[in-house]
Design a protein around this nucleic acid. Structure first.
Lengths: 156, 156
DNA sequence: ACATACAGAACTAAATTAGTACTGTATCTC
DNA sequence: GAGATACAGTACTAATTTAGTTCTGTATGT
């Protein structure tokens, strides 16, 4: 299934939960609120903190808070922090990961799709996730595809 | 890493390869052309055939061909055939897969993002992959996000 | 001083992915 | 119609990744 890891999903839930409370929150409370096991929450918060998305405070009354406003933290950053680079295929992210790179006809296009996907997730922020979203009517060839043109006959 | 499985990637390469040759192609030739091991190619072609994207022909001079024109086969279908449903998170695809569904604040939005992602990949076809694509300048809040509006204050 | 809470590292178990092997059946060629 | 070719189907194994745990250490507020 083409989807995020469970842990990354938890991470997004945790980040949203932190964003919704102005005060510092510790791992135990976040675990209770999210229903995710404490050791797992702890591990995720450490990783998010290590990536600079959260600021940690030790000691009693310690906890975590966002390093920036929710509007300035993209979903792409959260994903990047917890499961590494975003891409459509491995070869479009990790150079040299595939033996047939030179001859592969699809690789160049995979890279284009990856960039479109990344761009979309960079424009989606934690601030967006905090409010209910809705899907506008999908026009044919909209979305990712709208940002991709065919070189031959494309609109440029 | 948020990306397709290797096998799905191979599958897309194989489908593109088949699309580029009008005549029937057998598993052995496709394996040679793609550099993917024959047993793996064989398995993938079976799955794609089973999902109705390829038509198979037995016997000597047999092989596989596309069941429809490349313009009528979406990348979403290929992914769906090889790794199941497309989604952003598991809970937005498989109902009841998460214990905290009722209380989760993010789930509804995950579903919206999933639909946007799915819509984008449904509009991207094998025909597109056969030609070199290029990325148009990414405008702020374009792509997936452009199809999502915030209920409060959204453009509707 | 002491309890609290994060930091870091190492480890285990479960699940998924990737790849293989083998038997069966349809079909074309000669 | 005999035989080679090539797909169909199933079951299996190995490798990798993901998920979750445990333990020791260190900073900080009361």
């Amino acid at each position: 299934m083409f989807r995020l890891n469970k842990l990354t999903d938890y991470g997004i839930v945790l980040m949203t939960s932190i964003a919704q409370h102005p005060e510092l929150q510790n791992a135990r409370d976040l675990a209770a609120a999210s229903q995710v096991p404490l050791p797992t929450v702890s591990k995720l918060l450490k990783e998010l903190s290590h990536s600079g998305l959260l600021v940690s405070h030790r000691g009693s009354k310690g906890g975590y808070s966002l390093s920036r406003s929710p509007q300035q933290i993209s979903v792409a950053e959260i994903i990047g922090a917890l499961e590494g680079p975003i891409g459509f295929t491995e070869c479009s992210v990790v150079a040299g990961s595939c033996d047939l790179e030179p001859s592969c006809l699809v690789r160049r296009n995979s890279k284009v799709i990856s960039l479109a996907l990344l761009g979309a997730l960079e424009n989606l922020t934690l601030g967006d996730l905090m409010q209910p979203m809705e899907l506008a009517g999908l026009k044919p060839r909209s979305n990712i595809v709208s940002t991709i043109n065919l070189i031959s006959g494309g609109v440029q």
